[in-house]
Design a protein around this nucleic acid. Structure first.
Lengths: 104, 104
DNA sequence: TTTATTAGTAAGTAATAACTTACGGTAAGT
DNA sequence: ACTTACCGTAAGTTATTACTTACTAATAAA
């Protein structure tokens, strides 16, 4: 799992908007772009980033590229972050205990 | 919790490096900057972002600003992101079930 | 078989983010 | 007092990212 890709992918507000749109239903690119204040090609570029981060996938149906959330990618990211926070909190706790000990 | 702050703060690799450094021990700014390929003021700027995202705090001791992880902030962000992924997966599941139903 | 719709990519521009150097202020050591 | 060490901020530069328009290709509809 490349955390850098995922963080980066969701770091942009427009991409988060797209990601959240796809939570409602799978959508073709025109539909995703509809309502967003940017051009359709710009949306395509964002979709590329989300796809490379493995957060979404696409299925071509005739003329349409239907994008949807990628369950496996999302789970991978969630698991990575679970570990990330756990490490941080574990280390925090160890430091706090060390500080206690140092006082004595 | 502000999602923009969360993703933005950890979206930058240098900031994640700083965050991980602080998992080992609280550190003064010079120590944080030591080893990083950027200038000390640049580090200060990253620290500001992490601080505003409530991931770290600082304590001034004489001439030193000692930065350390902020347990409460980390927990808040973990909880927020847990929810974020859970929502995504819940929606994914609902969509999958809907698709099943539509087939019938 | 034209005509319209969908969508990705290329190339250039605009906006943003990360960085540097220069500075000022404060505390600690001499 | 003077000097050194620490650190934040300001201002400007560089690098990166987001965006636009123009184009091409592919399928669907007429």
């Amino acid at each position: 799992m490349n955390s850098q890709l995922a963080f980066n992918a969701l770091g942009d507000p427009t991409r988060r908007a797209i990601f959240e749109k796809l939570q409602h239903r799978p959508m073709a690119v025109v539909d995703i772009a509809d309502g967003l204040p940017i051009s359709r090609p710009a949306v395509s570029q964002h979709l590329k980033v989300l796809k490379e981060a493995k957060l979404i996938t696409l299925k071509t149906v005739g003329n349409n590229n239907i994008y949807k959330l990628n369950r496996d990618g999302i789970i991978a990211m969630r698991n990575y972050l679970d570990q990330f926070w756990e490490d941080a909190l574990t280390n925090f706790k160890a430091l706090a205990e060390q500080t206690e000990k140092d006082k004595k």
